[in-house]
Design a protein around this nucleic acid. Sequence first.
DNA 1: GGCGGTCAAGAGCGGTGCTCTCGATTTAGA
DNA 2: TCTAAATCGAGAGCACCGCTCTTGACCGCC
Lengths: 227, 227
Amino acid sequence: MSAPRTARARARAEITQEIVETGRRQLASDGAAALSLRAIARELGMVSSAVYRYFPSRDDLLTTLIVEAYDALGDAAEAADDDPEASAPTRLRRIARAVRDWARAHPHQYALVYGSPVPGYRAPFDTVRAAVRVQARLAEVLALHPPEHEPAPVSEPLASQLATVADRLPRPVPPALLARGMTAWNLLIGSVSLELFGHYANSVDDLDGLFECALDGMIELVGWSPA
Amino acid sequence: MSAPRTARARARAEITQEIVETGRRQLASDGAAALSLRAIARELGMVSSAVYRYFPSRDDLLTTLIVEAYDALGDAAEAADDDPEASAPTRLRRIARAVRDWARAHPHQYALVYGSPVPGYRAPFDTVRAAVRVQARLAEVLALHPPEHEPAPVSEPLASQLATVADRLPRPVPPALLARGMTAWNLLIGSVSLELFGHYANSVDDLDGLFECALDGMIELVGWSPA
DNA sequence: GGCGGTCAAGAGCGGTGCTCTCGATTTAGA
DNA sequence: TCTAAATCGAGAGCACCGCTCTTGACCGCC
């Protein structure tokens, strides 16, 4: 991350950035399927083959856009959870609403990370850190405010695997509670995906109200009393 | 749906069927993005432009494949729910497991209907009937076995919209309960999507156990006692 | 038996990802 | 400082895609 020394290195960093920005713009407006290296090159006034000097393939460009999307979602969630003194249900509500709001504001980016996987795409390990930021924040709330009644224990081998996952967290979360947190996470992603992907068209208009119901469900799942 | 009279009509129906079958095979093996009219034509030994006599565009072929996928999922769910005398949690478990099993067996078809929406695609109204078969079955179980404690009421305008949805169901379901059923549905789709789209790679291996946790959550959400 | 509708075939258009080569330019080392 | 190596943009080209148009052969109904 040191400043580029030579002029060529600086130019390279700048052009790389321009390519990513143009790609992000095209992704946001037309979706991942319409993201075209040739179109990016056209918009940037260079020839299509020149782009391959910066990204060896279209999928590599997609990878950086995926990491960007994960990070933007993580930023939004962490920014919404700005009061560590708030009650646990309130913090969960803020984080979950931030996820939904970000997804509605950036539908194509959300679809890129939580929708159908890109065909030949294999997530490099770098993406993992960015991918789990929201879940890590939720786990922190879980660790700081465990519910009064411990949820029913989970059976092996899931319990030991969840213990391994919990070890990577900054604060310990018992496996049974972590399982409930993951279930709440499943509910959150399911709610946002179904809404965003148009599965409530022609049936429910009050999407805000429906999401608040899902929020109540999430809080109930982890065992907090509604607040 | 009457039998085709002339030889030409019969040939047309047959070729249409062959195109759909080839498309389904390509979809199952390589995903929606790799579905190519030209490849289908190649495999069928005809020229690409000939396919356009049967499907005016690639998206039209995709539409029939989407309806097929919805119907196959509906068939699987209804076949699994074969004992009307079973307890409500058991019936929900069977239906939900059938959805997950079908999705794992046909990942690309599942992604086609519950993943990122196809870019320019607008679902025609015919798909709605096929799209809601699983939810309708779940709603039937809800109607036959309402939980002991009615869930917390939902606020307007969601309640009246859910009442409208309930009117289209064969058996009445109170809005508050229907909201809980939808939340459980969100959880189901979220669980299956996250698992199928690879979001548990490198973290949880016991996907069966994790899904059973989600099942417990669904039952808890609608208010049944676990069984 | 004609005649209108339907069909497969082919050529072609504009688009895509990606590869290769070829000069020009910049960097880094002797 | 001079030179060899690395990097760059440009262009041509390959194979593929969805889709359109035209042509000529075939079928089936009046």
